[in-house]
Design a protein around this nucleic acid. Structure first.
Lengths: 236, 236
DNA sequence: CGGGACGTTGACGGTCGTCAAAATTAGTGG
DNA sequence: CCACTAATTTTGACGACCGTCAACGTCCCG
C-alpha cells in the first residue's frame, strides 16, 4: 500500500492542533506518528464501524463528516452526534471491547486508525498524550451533558437554533465561514439528533427564514442574524 | 484526623468490585489505597462540588446517593444522572480543570476523594488502573448515549419505565431487592432527568399503579410486573 | 402541632407528531 | 445528455401527548 507519495504523519497534518496535544517535542510527535496504523477512505454512506464490531481503534477524522447513532431493540434510532475533521471517534468501544454505536460517513471521508492498545502503551510514557486522551473523553462527556439539556428542556426552535450555532462555531474553528454552512445531513438526521421529527425541522427552518434569521436553500444555510439565534437559545 | 478505628482502604471496602479493577495484586491495591486522599461525609442537600469549582479529584461514592445537574444561563435545569455507591463522579472536570456540573447528595453520603493527578501518575505504572480509568469514562459516554435515546425518542411512559428498570437493576447489583426500591429523589428531579414535568411523572406513576404494574406509596416503589415495564420500554 | 416541601389530580391549551400530498432534488441507467 | 425513479423536502390539516395552572392532599421535621 505504498503508492502514495505524501507522507502520512500527524506532524504534517493540518488537523494536528485539533486532535493532538500541543507542545509536544519532536521526538514524542514522531512516536505518535508511528502508532497511526491505517489511513483509510470512507465513502459517503459507508460505515467506519457498526454496533457490535470488535473495538480496536480510535479514529481521527482527517476530512469529511460523520454521524454516530444507536438503534434500540425495537428499531428506534437516535443520532448521538455529528463529527467533523479533527475530532476523535470510537470512544464508545473501550468499555466493553465492542462498539456501542454506528459511525457512518455523511460525505466521503478520510480517517486515521489509531490502535487503542498502542495509545495506552504510549500514553504511559508520554504524559501529555495521557492527559490528552483523558481530556478528549471528558470533553465528550461534557458535550453529551449539553445535549441532554437540549433534549430535556428546550423547545423545537431552541434546539434547532442551538444546533446551528454549534455547527457554525465548530466549522469556524476549522477556517470556514461563521455564517454560511452546508448541512451534510438530512432533515431526518437532524431531527433524530434533536429529538424531533423531520417535518418539525423543516417547519422550523421555514419559520427562521420567514423571520429573516437564516436563509435556507435545501442544505445551504446562511445565518443572517446570529444574535437572534442566540436570543432564541437563551431567552432573557 | 486519626480518630476513626476502621482503616480506610479500598482493600476492605465492600464497593471495591464495583469501583476498582479486578485482579489487582496486593501491592498494586496498596498503592491505590495510598492515593485516596480524604474520606468525607456529605449531608443530604449538600454539594460535593459545583459548576465552576476547580477540579482536583475524582470521587468514589462509598455510601449514599447523588444527582449531577447542569444549569443553563437562563436558569434551565437538567439532571444529567443519578449516582449510587460504587460509582465514580467528577469526570466532567478533567477537560477544563473546572467542574462543569453540580454534584448534590440526595441522602447522607460518604465519598473517597482521589486526586486525579495522582491517578494519572499511578496509572502510568499500573496498567490495570490505566485501563480501568478509560473504561469508566467510556462507560459514562455509552450511558449518556442511552439517555439521549430515551430523551430523543421515548414517550413519558417509556421513559419512566426505563428509568425504574435501570434503577432496580443497579440496586440489585448492590445486593438490594430487584423489585422494591426507595426513590431518593423528588418527582421534579425525576422529571428533570427524564425531560418531563413533575406532574407528568406523578400521573404516569398513577397510571402504572392503576394497571397493576407497580405499587407506589410516595417514594416507596414496588415493581409488581417487571415484564410489563420491559414491554413498555420495548414494544414489539 | 403547625408550616413548608412534596405529591396528586383535574381542566385546558399549545407544541409537536402523524398522515397525506405535492414539489424539488439527487441518483441511475439507457 | 436525458429520462425516469427514488429520496428528500415542504406544506397543510388534524389530533395526541404533555405542559401549564390551579387546588387540594399528604408527609416530614422542627
Amino acid at each position: 500500500m505504498n503508492h502514495q507519495s505524501i507522507k502520512i504523519a500527524c506532524s504534517n497534518c493540518n488537523m494536528r492542533e485539533l486532535c493532538m496535544p500541543i507542545g509536544l517535542s519532536e521526538g514524542d510527535l514522531d512516536r505518535i506518528d508511528a502508532i497511526i496504523g491505517v489511513r483509510k477512505k470512507i465513502k459517503r454512506g459507508e460505515s467506519l464501524y457498526l454496533n457490535g464490531d470488535r473495538f480496536n481503534n480510535l479514529y481521527a477524522i482527517r476530512t469529511g463528516f460523520f454521524k454516530t447513532c444507536i438503534t434500540s431493540e425495537d428499531g428506534r434510532d437516535q443520532v448521538t452526534g455529528f463529527q467533523m475533521a479533527g475530532e476523535i471517534i470510537g470512544l464508545d468501544g473501550i468499555v466493553n471491547d465492542y462498539h456501542a454505536c454506528d459511525a457512518v460517513a455523511l460525505e466521503d471521508a478520510e480517517i486515521c486508525a489509531m490502535p487503542f492498545a498502542q495509545i495506552e502503551d504510549l500514553s504511559r510514557e508520554v504524559n501529555a498524550l495521557q492527559h490528552h486522551v483523558h481530556k478528549i473523553m471528558s470533553r465528550e462527556i461534557v458535550r453529551e451533558h449539553g445535549v441532554m439539556l437540549l433534549l430535556g428542556s428546550m423547545r423545537a426552535e431552541e434546539r434547532l437554533a442551538a444546533f446551528l450555532l454549534n455547527l457554525a462555531q465548530r466549522l469556524h474553528a476549522r477556517g470556514f465561514s461563521q455564517s454560511e454552512l452546508i448541512l451534510r445531513m438530512t432533515r431526518e438526521e437532524i431531527g433524530s439528533f434533536l429529538g424531533l421529527k423531520l417535518e418539525t425541522i423543516s417547519r422550523t427552518f421555514s419559520r427562521f427564514a420567514e423571520d429573516g434569521i437564516v436563509d435556507v436553500k435545501q442544505r445551504h444555510v446562511h445565518i443572517l442574524n446570529t444574535q437572534a439565534l442566540q436570543d432564541i437559545v437563551n431567552p432573557r
